[in-house]
Design a protein around this nucleic acid. Structure first.
Lengths: 344, 344
DNA sequence: CTGTTAGCGCTTTCAA
DNA sequence: TTGAAAGCGCTAACAG
């Protein structure tokens, strides 16, 4: 199979020199004469030499590789976050391994094992819907592999994370509806084991409370974040014995499903719909061109999370750690805050 | 930094046995007594041992890892292809490294170098828009690293590929428009260095020719596959001194941009629009719920490409390797890998 | 500036 | 069933 594996020893032998010199030359060490360097590089090229990173990394016990774990890359938010991660990582000379948990805790655990086995230098994670058990992250800690949560985080203390202020965003979304004179506001929530959806729910409740609007259990419908859920949920809402005049969706995909269903059955959309989440640009522009705002939040979050992981948060950002950054999202007010938490 | 690196030697020493025995035990070799095995496994767990795959792979010169190169993971077609690739790969015990060329030849080359350096056991590629030079693939060949193209392929002879029949699909798409009585049919084509867009263009021309409809240069507008291009192209079409009554888009994203723009400026969409490509499920359902058909083509293509790469194509179709496999597709009439979307 | 030597952590002969 | 020894390809002291 692998016949053509040219090594530094081959090059060394052919040139009648030592392999360490070859190694040095190929790593562009200043401690090799330019003449020898040229000779070596030429020969290496000629033979199609390609360093074996396995060996190199093993020796150096450093891989310059980061692992990224997301529920699924097909979600627009995650793919744009990955774009940001890659940009920031490449800038620092790191490669990135992208992995999908597919919302499965088991896969998430197995991915972490693989990443550890491959000795990645750090991990960026947005946890799966099933993740309630945090043992696997502790494993990373024990092995001194730094990791940073982004978006879907865990409430483990002393872990670095980059998240938006979900409570505030949800509060504002709900408040917006109230200001539109809605009083029966439904909430399509997400999995309540995920902090972000917990917080969005809390924000919703807080807004109601603050405006003295009674909270109704039956107006809150959970989902597993699929487009189908939007339609299902709307059906439930429509079957209620009273009129709902506002809707706050905790997730963009679900919102799209809901809007879609309403359109399809020709029912006028309730007074107002507020969405917290990072809508797919294309999709939202198709629903309504006005929704096409700047959707750089995913990219930005990915970048910042990576910089945080690599300890390369810019000077400007440095003071913002533990403070709030404003990024634009498609939330009504078109902004929400981003929180960075860094822990050693 | 890496303090806690437990090795098989640590385990061996603690247990007063040899590290080869530990290695065998951890690999579940039958040549270790069950009792010793249990002892070793227990201790390994206790110490949080995690094999160093770098070392293991180096020694075995086999990584059980496949590289995947796509233009961008955010395109629905590619993310579903990746899902298919991962499924097929995991089934055979392989891991997958996902890389984005971001439509850049330079990045594509550098990715291939990285994958080679990491000694992946195979590569799956859908080439970038810029790729016209195929040297880097030759490099894989020289190193005996098998690779398979899917969707966006090269016209290198003797390479494995999994593609749809773009010519036929385009022919039928155009034919469909003609049957709707369109005679001035525009074609939004893709980059003509990519085979798939070349073939779609050819199919368009062939259909016109066959139905004795004159081909007009000015009705063909190329694009770089961005949503913006759709709007730009439509503008050009609208400025023509004659009426266009049909449109065949060679790419889904461009089509969406076009439809969007027409909607926005309140112009009735021309007689008919046909799209060849793998639309984003969500997006197309938003445009028109009737379009929500089964979008498994990407997944399927990914699966087949992977099986082809791993020599696990069902049956004894070994002779098809190094030849072209055609995934037959159908148009309107069948749920399929390839679809034509019709819009009123 | 270059060579010698050792060893990263693992697997795999070959012997016992 | 276990041990001893060699070596995957590379880098990094240390010497010269």
């Amino acid at each position: 199979m692998h016949t053509n594996e040219v090594t530094i020893h081959d090059i060394a032998e052919i040139l009648g020199i030592n392999s360490s010199t070859v190694s040095r030359a190929l790593n562009n060490s200043p401690r090799v004469a330019q003449k020898t360097k040229d000779k070596i590089l030429k020969k290496a090229n000629e033979l199609g030499y390609q360093r074996n990173d396995l060996a190199s990394n093993l020796r150096k016990s450093k891989t310059f590789t980061l692992g990224v774990i997301v529920p699924r890359i097909s979600r627009h938010f995650f793919s744009s976050a990955i774009a940001g991660i890659e940009e920031a990582a490449f800038k620092e000379g790191y490669n990135v391994i992208i992995c999908q948990s597919l919302e499965s805790l088991e896969r998430e655990q197995s991915i972490i094992n693989t990443l550890v086995a491959n000795r990645v230098d750090g991990v960026l994670i947005s946890i799966s819907m099933e993740t309630e058990n945090y043992k696997h992250f502790k494993g990373l800690e024990q092995r001194n592999i730094p990791f940073v949560f982004f978006d879907r985080h865990c409430n483990i203390s002393k872990t670095s994370k980059v998240v938006i202020d979900d409570f505030e965003a949800a509060y504002r979304a709900t408040e917006h509806l109230i200001q539109q004179k809605s009083t029966e506001i439904a909430h399509f929530s997400g999995p309540q084991n995920l902090e972000i959806y917990k917080n969005r729910f809390k924000g919703y409740k807080a807004a109601l409370e603050n405006y003295k609007i009674p909270f109704r259990e039956e107006l809150v419908i959970a989902s597993s974040l699929m487009e189908d859920d939007g339609a299902k949920n709307i059906k439930k809402i429509l079957s209620l014995p009273f009129q709902v005049d506002g809707l706050f969706c905790a997730n963009d995909v679900v919102a799209i499903g809901a809007i879609q269903y309403l359109k399809k059955i020709g029912i006028k959309i309730p007074e107002d719909i507020a969405i917290v989440g990072f809508s797919n640009e294309t999709t939202s522009s198709v629903i309504d061109p006005a929704l096409t705002t700047i959707h750089q939040s995913g990219f930005k979050i990915g970048q910042i999370a990576t910089n945080l992981l690599l300890d390369k948060i810019s000077n400007d950002d440095k003071k913002q750690i533990h403070e709030t950054i404003i990024v634009k999202t498609n939330l009504i007010e078109r902004k929400s805050s981003l929180r960075i938490e860094k822990h050693e």
